[in-house]
Nucleic acid binder design. Structure first.
Lengths: 242, 242
DNA sequence: GATTTTGGTTGTGCTAGCGCAAACTCGCTG
DNA sequence: CAGCGAGTTTGCGCTAGCACAACCAAAATC
């Protein structure tokens, strides 16, 4: 997934890009060709917003490479990370759920590449491509489940457990095996982690320091490697993060 | 909505029952007749579970009358209320989002009546009845938005603000105008409110007592009337509850 | 390679809200 | 109508985690 970082400008997109992606997995090559011909491809620098909360939901996206953070901001300016989107998934599909504007902001966590289509093609996609709707709604289902689990955590768990859950979740979704453990393969700062757990970055930092002392994790700046996942699960209160 | 509490056993259901409900609003009478003929109607006592987390998602439901609480329980036995379903809405539609089991428990908050259909009819409904899918996914969209707002609250707001948000939300969704203000038209205990906000029932009780002293609300056991919604909005930090 | 920026660590109060405990009040049931 | 159970109120001490603050270190920029 990390290769081929600049897949193409229009017309040069390779069919194989979409074949592994759930929403398109069961389509024939010629169908994928059609879809690609309608797509706009764009690269986003790390930190750049793909779309912003409140703006007209004109397009829907599929992430080809990279990682997206879905973010909401409270009136007091506090930020939370509602969701992480790994590559291969659809995002910005709010309009398919009846919204006219994006209900959250999508920010590239690393340099990312996404295809997008104007929203008016959505009904065509659903009608024409078998399994597209099903796969999409499955994705929605997962995200709902994840959100409800996170609500449960926020409402009932201590900060330390919430941090553990957040890390386990990221490992499950985007962990890469490395020699000394499993590494989260996109950058996360303590600040980010605090925005995922509703804690302060200070508390997060203290907690991670303690875990590092105990050999549970290793962390470089912006990167975390879990050496002892099992201990983390214990700490998390085993809410079996989704 | 409060009349006709025992709409019927099979075969005696009245078409008019469904015409005001969004998912069926744009259907012809004969289509509604078809749908009703396939439905099972059942009454649920207050406190009874319509379905439970983890069980096979065999049926989907529409609430004709009453109120449903969607509940999740943590491993430590802590409960949270993820959602309130007012009458007229679909619920238990997890299978349409790719789940094979219900991801949460649905409990009747008051004596309630719901229709249900076996899940295998879902694809037919979507295919045959125009607008059914659209309306359904709109509902899903609202619930996602509500959940994400609540995550934002849980992560960033103080307990008092969260309680204010929770009450405002219920008022918007199911407030009934009464002489001294607006009343939430289903029973809520302090315990319930604590399960919605991730606070203890003690703190909730204290907060409501203070508000009652200040004339913002009036409360009887299991019932809350908001006398001064504006003050509550101020207290809520105006996250514009969804 | 000096400087600035961004991210991380750590220490020290302080307080919101929890945990525990006790008592009180409706409304129901036998 | 006594007794019970469910819901509520209130007091008190304690602590998890926040706020504030100062400092450190990697990495980007010039």
């Amino acid at each position: 997934m990390k290769n081929n970082r600049h897949p193409a400008r229009h017309g040069l997109l390779d069919e194989s890009l979409l074949t592994q992606m759930p929403p398109f997995a069961m389509l024939r090559t010629d169908q994928i060709r059609e879809i690609l011909d309608l797509a706009t491809s764009r690269r986003y620098e790390a930190g750049v917003a793909v779309f912003e909360e409140g703006f007209d939901a004109e397009r829907f996206y599929v992430l080809l490479d990279g990682h997206i953070r879905v973010v909401r901001i409270s009136e007091q300016g506090e930020r939370i990370i509602a969701l992480h989107i790994p590559s291969g998934q659809l995002f910005g599909i709010a309009a398919a759920l009846g919204h006219t504007t994006y209900p959250a902001t999508a920010i590239a966590a690393v340099e990312s590449v996404a295809l997008s289509w104007p929203m008016h093609l959505w009904p065509d996609f659903v009608a024409r491509y078998d399994g597209f709707a099903t796969q999409t709604y499955k994705t929605v289902g997962h995200r709902i489940e994840e959100m409800s689990s996170r609500m449960l955590e926020l409402a009932t768990q201590q900060v330390e457990q919430r941090i553990a859950c957040a890390i386990l979740r990221m490992i499950n979704q985007s962990g890469r095996k490395v020699d000394n453990g499993i590494k989260i393969d996109f950058p996360i700062t303590r600040q980010n982690l605090s925005e995922m757990t509703g804690a302060t970055l200070h508390t997060v930092s203290r907690t991670l320091s303690a875990w590092e002392r105990d050999g549970i994790i290793e962390s470089q700046r912006k990167h975390i490697t879990v050496c002892d996942p099992h201990k983390l699960v214990i700490l998390s209160g085993t809410l079996a993060p989704t």
